[in-house]
Each structure stands twice: as C-alpha cells, then as structure tokens.
Design a protein around this nucleic acid. Structure first.
Lengths: 191, 191
DNA sequence: TTGATAAACTAACTATGTTAGTTTATAATG
DNA sequence: CATTATAAACTAACATAGTTAGTTTATCAA
C-alpha cells in the first residue's frame, strides 16, 4: 500500500474509455474505473477534479477521433466528392464506436467549452472543403451548420432506434440526405 | 400519516414535469418529486415501477406536446408551406421547452418502445403532408427521415451551445437548411 | 362492526460521488 | 547517507439516489 507513481489522468482516461467500450458508457463510474486500475476510487481525485472531468475527457477524446476519421475521409478529395465522403465517414464512425458517439451526444449535460472547442475542429474541416465553392463567409457558415446538423441528427436518430420499423434502406436514406444538401450548394440562390 | 388516496401516476408525472421545468431535468429525482408531493419517496413505488418509468413518462409527454405543436403548425397549410411551418414549429418548441426537449434527447438511454411509438406519431404528420407530392413510398420515407434528422440535429446542436461563436444569424441558417431540403423535393431525380 | 385492500410509512441496503484526514513511498536536499 | 517534503495512495465517513421489505393505517365493502 501507500504510493505507486504510475497513475496519471491519461491512464485514467484510457481506462474509462476501455470500460465504456466494454460495458457501455452508462456503466463508467469512478468505482469501476478505479477497480480496473487496481486502486480505490478516492485515489482518482489526486488526478482529476471529479466525475465530470472524466466525462468531458471522454467526450473530447471521442470528438477528436471523429475529427481524425473525417479528415482522413476528406484527404485527396474535393468539393462534392469530399463532402459525401465526410458524410459517410461520420456515420461510419458513429456505427463503429457507439459508446464513444454516445459520449458526444451526452455533452448537452455539461456544456463544457473545451468540448465545444473540439467540436469546432470538426467544423473547421468542413470550412476547408467549402473553400473551392467560393461562397461568402456567411453562406458558408449557413451551409456548414446545416450539413453538420443533418449528419448529426440522422446518426442520432438512427442510434436511438428510429428508422427501424419502416422498411426502406437506411444507407440510402442517409446518402440521399447528404446528396440533397450537397446538390443545393451547386444551385443559384434564386432556385 | 397512513394513507391518502389522492396520488396516482398522472399526478406524479405532472409533478415531475413541473420540477423539470423549474429546476432542470437533471434534478428530477424520486426524492425531489416525492418531496414536492408531500410524500416519502418509497411511496411512489405504489404507482410506478421505478425511476425509469418516470423518465419514459416525461419523454412521452414531451414528444406528445411536440407532436401537437407540429400538427398545429401544419393545419391549413400544404406542401412546401406546410413543411416550412413544421420546421419552424419544431425549433420553436425546443426553444420554448428546453427541459422537455432534453427529455426527448435523452431517450437513447432507454430505447423504450413506447417512446418510439410517440416519435412515430410526429413522423406520421410528415407523411400526411408529403401526400400531395405523389412520391413513391420509398422516396417519401427517405425524405421524411432526412427532413426530421435535419430538424432534430440542428436543434440539438444549437441547444448544446454550438452555433454561438461564429457570428451569423442562426434563424437564417435554420431556415436555409429547411428550404434546401424542401426545394430538393421539387426537383427531378436526375438533377 | 369487522375485515380486506391499498397506500402510505419506516428501516435498511446498494451504489455513486465526494471530502477529510492519515499513512507511506519516492524525490529532493543538506 | 540521513532527513524532510511532497505527492499519491489509503481509510473512514457522509450525502444523495434508487430500491426492497416489511409494517401501519385509513378507507371501503361485506
């Protein structure tokens, strides 16, 4: 007993993420994380301020990985092609990492500014892709907000179990949504 | 002490909703609800099976009211006009009832089928509005899924505090998103 | 009047988050 | 090398939440 200098906030975060992926995000408690690390739960307080900090950490990590996935999808592509690739990568990430995506969904609870910062990083990629369209800043912002909202909304509703009963191809619904928005970019405003 | 026959599940639900609106959804606990009703928390178990049932009840009520708001907006309107009105009503509801809307957002946690049922009621209105467009069932489903996703996604992200830093009119972003999708309905598939 | 029922109660348990105060291993210093 | 300071672990304890079991009691029906 006494002291072992191996623990730090990164290790704790890693354990929490692992736990989330194993047993679901809702079962990530300081008790469980501490147990996983062979430590008593109050010991964690030497490295973090509370459970909220852990939640924020998970959310940030999840958003960071989402950003990576999106950036990876956009690389080597441009314009419509890039936008569609981003859309598909977004949904793939959510499907491949359901617990981490839940952590992103949960951020309304905390309203943390750090999380929002990481969220902006995702949006920044979209701004880059938008450049060749030569739209005004304002128009670009409007489009990016809408595009991101659509991706997020679809994936959230799908994760929540909607789109199950009515039999139509969900992949196709998603593709059409993305294409509708992307097409609208290439049209004159008057249309 | 002893017994008063006034309590029932509806009364409890009403108290919970009131509490949510007063102190935030995250502060709705059986303890607080019981206190508000002048009762000890175990007494609530005579009328409900647990806190989950209460959460589901709140979510269902919130979705029910959302459905009402949307139906009210669609009445007397048709086609593009109706769709836009629904979109605006959707966001208004979320803004006017932030705690209730949070309850809707939270349903991923439970995956309850009753909640999904009420969610479908919202979608049913959209199907009605879609009729005059004379699209195939499949096309209609795709569009409705996308449209609803967009509304939900935008409102969720807005509630979470995104769209704040970058200075562009948020109302306009939302309107444009709705219009983009609605316009895409009036186009040939080949476009 | 009496007895059954339903609704409230108390007591107690588990789990979670958290704080306070104690011990102890390592690192830093004389 | 001895000592001290620090940091990281510990134990103990408390609050709050949800929940269960078992008890009391008011009301309603026979």
């Amino acid at each position: 007993m006494g002291t072992r200098r191996n623990l730090d906030s990164q290790t704790i975060l890693d354990a929490a993420v692992e736990l989330a992926e194993e047993k679901g995000l809702e079962n990530v408690s300081l008790l469980q994380v501490a147990e996983k690390l062979g430590v008593k739960s109050p010991s964690l307080y030497n490295h973090l301020s509370g459970v909220q900090e852990l939640s924020v950490g998970i959310a940030r990590l999840a958003l960071g990985r989402l950003e990576e996935a999106i950036r990876g999808a956009a690389v080597g592509r441009s314009r419509d092609d890039a936008l569609l690739a981003i859309a598909l990568a977004y949904r793939s990430y959510a499907k491949d990492n359901p617990e981490l995506y839940k952590a992103i969904l949960r951020f309304p609870d905390c309203g943390d500014s750090d999380v929002q910062e990481t969220g902006h990083a995702v949006v920044r990629i979209l701004y880059q892709v938008m450049e060749p369209y030569h739209r005004s800043d304002e128009e670009t912002i409007h489009f990016v907000r809408g595009f991101r909202s659509a991706l997020h909304g679809f994936v959230s509703l799908e994760a929540a179990g909607f789109f199950r009963g009515d039999g139509a191809n969900v992949d196709e619904s998603y593709r059409q949504l993305a294409v509708r928005l992307i097409s609208s970019l290439n049209m004159k405003k008057s249309d």
